[in-house]
């Protein structure tokens, strides 16, 4: 019988070979994806490093750390707009080789300024439509095709380019005791290194529900620049994610790099699939005003001294809070030598 058999494969042999190939591909594909993700993460680290250095250069020139947002209601400053408002991003443009954009962006008018809203005013919105690579993490789905729309301080905007990086400016007032700080502390005492700059007559400022404030100097970072986060990842906007699930593809319009509301306060989330705070999950639970990235297991952060670190999702929430505050020294046990490890 064997002598009659011609060279060929039986069905079983074929199936075995196919199964082996399938297993090999199954092993190979995740490996390739991992390499791609590692490259993306490195690019993201590099972006944050650039932003950290840009902030340091800004500090050398101006004598203070860039404010997370600017709001100026000094009378007659930007008529007919109520005042000027900017995010942290435009002031860093000259330091990330975007001087050309900085020159056309008018710092004397609000970021929402556009001749289509008030004829004759500069078109800041046109500048903010430019995608800037340094503000985008390559791991974020949607890449360059994402645009942000909405309304802010009464000015409608659309088609603006997003940022995957933003600053976590403080700990929100409802979550202060959760992170172990005394109830007497406020979002102002627990502010981070980039803080708001609010200017104008006290009465006008108060009518907006604010108090006047100036940006930090290096000397006012009492916890040390190595222990204070400058900029975090809040990736994926304008899409809104809970855990890894897409909830909406438009709702986070505040993610435009020029929107003064693109920063956020820390609350944490009850679980990795929840948006309600406070909670023990401070990284990658949601990109709705929390630190969020598409990297597996954590997010990149740049500190006020310019070093970039990868913070794990499993990191202690109180340690994370300690890294956010610029002047929390001694307030909680975690404030002594906080570290991302």
């Amino acid at each position: 019988m064997t002598s009659m058999r011609r060279g060929g494969f039986t069905l079983i042999e074929l199936l075995v070979v196919i199964a082996i190939i399938a297993v090999l591909i199954g092993l190979l594909v995740p490996a390739v994806q991992k390499v791609r993700e590692a490259a993306n993460r490195m690019q993201c680290t590099n972006n944050l490093k650039q932003l950290g250095l840009a902030a340091m250069n800004y500090e050398s020139t101006n004598g203070h750390i860039p404010p997370s947002a600017i709001f100026d209601v000094t009378p007659n400053i930007a008529p007919p707009y109520p005042g000027i408002a900017h995010s942290w991003a435009p002031s860093l443009l000259p330091y990330i080789e975007q001087d050309a954009l900085y020159k056309v962006y008018n710092m004397k008018y609000p970021w929402g300024s556009s001749p289509s809203i008030v004829p004759g005013t500069p078109d800041n919105q046109a500048v903010l439509k430019n995608q800037i690579k340094t503000f985008l993490c390559p791991s974020s789905p949607g890449g360059n095709n994402r645009t942000c729309s909405g309304t802010s301080i009464g000015l409608p905007y659309s088609g603006l380019a997003p940022t995957d990086y933003a600053t976590c400016t403080s700990i929100n007032s409802g979550s202060i005791t959760f992170f172990g700080y005394p109830a007497t502390a406020t979002s102002t005492t627990l502010a981070s290194s980039m803080q708001f700059q609010v200017r104008g007559p006290a009465a006008v400022v108060a009518a907006y529900g604010l108090t006047a404030s100036e940006p930090n100097r290096i000397a006012s970072i009492l916890d040390g620049t190595t222990n204070t986060i400058l900029i975090c990842e809040d990736a994926g906007r304008p899409f809104e994610y809970i855990g890894r699930t897409l909830k909406s593809s438009t709702s986070r319009g505040d993610g435009a790099w020029g929107n003064h509301e693109n920063d956020y306060g820390l609350d944490g989330c009850v679980s990795m699939n929840s948006q309600s705070g406070p909670g023990n999950f401070v990284i990658n639970a949601t990109n709705d005003n929390e630190t969020y990235s598409f990297h597996t297991g954590g997010a990149n952060l740049v500190f006020t001294d310019g070093h970039v670190a990868f913070a794990k999702e499993s990191m202690s929430p109180t340690t994370y809070a300690a890294l956010i505050t610029a002047r929390g020294a001694g307030m909680t046990p975690a404030e002594t030598s906080p570290s991302t490890d």
Binding site: G180, P182, G209, Y264
Partner: peptide, 27 residues
């Protein structure tokens, strides 16, 4: 507030009705 810096909306927490008597973890 008429002007928000964080886009989080919603009212922020007001003062503690217990005057912070039970608000300090160490005390």
């Amino acid at each position: 507030p008429k002007m928000s810096f964080t886009g989080e909306g919603g009212p922020k927490a007001g003062p503690d009705r217990l005057n912070g008597r039970f608000g300090t973890p160490s005390a």
